[in-house]
Design a protein around this nucleic acid. Sequence first.
DNA 1: GCAAATACCGACCAGTCGGTATGTTTCCCC
DNA 2: GGGGAAACATACCGACTGGTCGGTATTTGC
Lengths: 200, 200
Amino acid sequence: MATQERSSATQARILDAARALFLERNFADVTMEQVAATAQATKGAVYHHFASKEELYLAMLHADLEDKRELFQRAVDMPGNCRERLRRLTSDYFHLPRGHREIISLVRRDVNVFEGDARTSLIRAYQSALPEQVEKILCDGVEAKQIEAADPRLLSWSFVALVEVSLSPHAGRVFPGGEAKLDHILNLFFDGASTAVVPN
Amino acid sequence: MATQERSSATQARILDAARALFLERNFADVTMEQVAATAQATKGAVYHHFASKEELYLAMLHADLEDKRELFQRAVDMPGNCRERLRRLTSDYFHLPRGHREIISLVRRDVNVFEGDARTSLIRAYQSALPEQVEKILCDGVEAKQIEAADPRLLSWSFVALVEVSLSPHAGRVFPGGEAKLDHILNLFFDGASTAVVPN
DNA sequence: GCAAATACCGACCAGTCGGTATGTTTCCCC
DNA sequence: GGGGAAACATACCGACTGGTCGGTATTTGC
């Protein structure tokens, strides 16, 4: 039993190292030796647990995306109107530790290095982890006439994009507290930047 | 004189090839031989014009960003209110040929592979080509009370992000004509997604 | 028309890195 | 308590690629 614990511990260390490294460098610029070193293991150990660099990367991403999907699911299943649920989802997201928060933009960053099944399944995992959950909330909002009828998928991507903008250091400086940042995003998304009360 | 023409012609071909290749693959996944082949030249020719792979990449990006800066400048200098000028800027952008349109997201994609001066000057070029121009328009809007007082830089990034979302194939399907897409972005940014006429 | 310069070619080098083959240690099970 | 398998460690391979360098062809200035 001790050997199995030890094994899954190293596996977790390798995944952690991979997450940290792939977050700050490109897929191509991270070497398997760096991963091994950061995980306090050797290349042999890494290749014992993951068949290839690509598999390691994808395993890390899929694990992380699945975590997020479950987290956001809770906001989707929450009672309340569209805006409240979106606020909850975004708040949950902001309260993630830094290393886990930015993995999502990473999918967009180097999804292009893969092709075929790996690529499609990665995109699918990302879609179902984030945009589709937002989309569900938005669809309810459109149905309840809280939101203007528009393509929900496009709206959800737009919302995600606005959240991503708020990850920048500059946004952190403008809104030191998390609450104000949250309000800003929701206000911008729901009510727009204009002061005009009646849209043209 | 003919030799100089010939020279700058190959240089242009190399830059074109670089743009096309770097657009669909990572920096690391593009080889100098591929660039040479696509440009119908040899590696020797490429290295004759550009000292290194990094220099080629940066030269290509800077040239392209400078073009865009000049293009967007025209919208900034235009008379009219904030919304009209933003519309013009975005419209100009949409009317660019496809290969030139998406270069901008490319900066965000692999700015991380560089460090030091190269990195900072690239970010600066990007900033002054796009977000800062949007920012100027927004600042005027805030001053004229057409836009709610908020951090203009953050607002400009948000706007750029919304435009980027509309580059997706799905957005192209939802809005086959350019005009409708333009309206959608502007409506979303200025008036938000909500149906509520009076913001909370 | 010739010599120097410029543009260009392509074989080659050196370093890197993903992946493998082969030990070696540790633990589990009978 | 021993044999076997799983978890590592280490040495190494081979392919790839950025960059170099000696050489060639074409201009251009004189």
